[in-house]
């Protein structure tokens, strides 16, 4: 099995940031959260399904454009930094949202 690693890294980073955007947007906009909730019955299910579909679509789209000549270490560092930032933003957002 040979996957396009560069594209896989791009789609992972973009999917993680999509989750961050959906999460924060959903908390700040009632109408958007309602839209997420009515789409599948629960906002969290919609976020999960959207993320999965987005991940697959972005992977195949980028695979067609980007050639797989990735430096795995650099990309793993990029993905790790993006993920850690996303964790901090989500935690920080909910902390800020909770504290009066």
């Amino acid at each position: 099995m040979k996957l396009n690693i560069k594209s896989l890294n791009y789609s992972t980073i973009l999917t993680i940031w999509l989750i961050v955007v959906l999460t924060i947007w959903g908390e700040l906009s009632n109408s958007f959260k309602t839209f997420l909730a009515v789409s599948t019955g629960h906002h969290w299910i919609t976020k999960g399904m959207l993320s999965l579909i987005f991940f697959v679509v972005v992977y195949f789209m980028i695979s067609k454009i980007v050639k797989d000549r990735a430096d795995s270490t650099n990309w793993a560092i990029n993905t790790s930094i993006a993920t850690i930032l996303a964790v901090i933003i989500i935690f920080g957002f909910y902390l800020w949202h909770f504290v009066p």
């Binding site: 099995m1 896989l8 789609s11 992972t12 999917t15 993680i16 989750i19 993320s51 991940f55 795995s72």
Partner: peptide, 18 residues
Amino acid sequence: HVFLFLPFLSILATGIIF
């Protein structure tokens, strides 16, 4: 919400390994 990151990170790690 952070849990949602794990499936994609694991696919990436497994993808690089395979």
